[in-house]
Design a binder for these strands. Structure first.
Lengths: 139, 139
DNA sequence: GTGATTGCAAATCTTTTGCACTAAA
DNA sequence: TTTAGTGCAAAAGATTTGCAATCAC
C-alpha cells in the first residue's frame, strides 16, 4: 500500500503546471497518483471516482486527463483503436500490451535499446518513440 | 506509375487467402495494391472507391479491410485514438508518424534494431513489436 | 467580482451490427 | 441451388462541445 499522498503535495503539483487545484482535479489526481504506476481509461477513472463518492462528470474526467497530459503529468498510450489509456508513469519507458486482456505493462526504458534509429525526415523533430510489444496467450 | 495489376493476379490473391473475389473486394484490392505501399483509413479508401465510380458502402469497406487484415493482406496500424490506418506493406517494418499531418511513413525493418528486448511475460507469446517514431515540425 | 472550471445533454466521429437482398460457386 | 457477401440504416462506443451554473482566487 502506498501511503496516501497528502493534499498539499497534489495542490503543489497542480499549481506547478498551472492548473487550479479544484475539487475534482484534486480528487482525480489523488486517484491517479496515490497508488504507483497505473494505466487507466477515462471510463475507468470515472468509475473509480464515482466509487470513491467523488461526484464528477465524465466530461470533466476527459478534460482533466487531457490537461494532465498536456502539462506532462500523464502520458497517453494508444494501442487499441477507439480507446485511450493514460499512464501515470511519465518517465522514458515502453509497454507490453496484453491483447487478450487489454492490459498494459511497463517496460523500463533501459530494457529496450534502439540502435541505428533512422534520422527524422528533414525539418521534423522526434517527439517520442513508442515501442509496443503485443503479446497474447501462447498457441 | 506502377502498372495496373491485372485482375487475374488480384483474383488469385483473394482466392489464396480464402476470400471470394467479389466485385467490391476486387475493386478495393486494386485500389489498395496497385500503387505501391499505402496507409489508408476506411474513410479514405471509401472516398477513393466512390471517386473511381465503384459504388461500395462504407460498411463493406470496413468488412473488406478487416478481412484483408485477418488474412495477412493488410496490417492495421494504430497511432491515433479513434482512427485506424491500414498498411499495404505487410513486411516487417516500423513507422514515422507525422503528428502535424496525420501521415504515416514506413521505416524499413532493418533500419531499426531492437537490442535486449525483455522476455515476454510467462505464458505469453510475442505477436508483434511496433515501433512508432512520432515526429512534428521543429520548434 | 471575475475569469476559470464544471456538469449536463446533445452532437460528433468512427466503427459495428442486423437483416433483407444479391451474387458467386 | 446454396452459401457467402453486400448495402442500408440503425446502434454502439468513445470523445467533444456549447453553454449556463459554480467555484477558486
Amino acid at each position: 500500500m502506498a501511503a496516501q499522498r497528502p493534499y498539499s503535495d497534489l495542490i503543489n503539483r497542480l499549481k506547478t503546471v498551472g492548473l487550479r487545484p479544484t475539487r475534482q482535479r484534486l480528487a482525480l489526481a489523488r486517484l491517479l497518483f496515490s497508488r504507483g504506476d497505473r494505466h487507466l481509461t477515462a471510463e475507468q477513472l470515472h468509475g473509480e471516482a464515482v466509487a470513491a463518492r467523488v461526484p464528477v462528470s465524465l466530461a470533466t474526467v476527459y478534460n482533466a486527463l487531457h490537461q494532465f497530459t498536456n502539462t506532462g503529468l500523464l502520458r497517453e498510450v494508444i494501442v487499441e483503436p477507439g480507446r485511450s489509456y493514460f499512464d501515470t508513469n511519465v518517465t522514458d519507458h515502453h509497454h507490453f500490451f496484453h491483447e487478450d486482456s487489454g492490459h498494459l505493462e511497463d517496460i523500463a526504458g533501459e530494457d529496450v535499446r534502439l540502435v541505428a534509429l533512422p534520422a527524422p525526415p528533414k525539418g521534423k523533430r522526434v517527439r517520442r518513440v513508442d515501442v509496443i510489444i503485443r503479446v497474447h496467450l501462447g498457441d
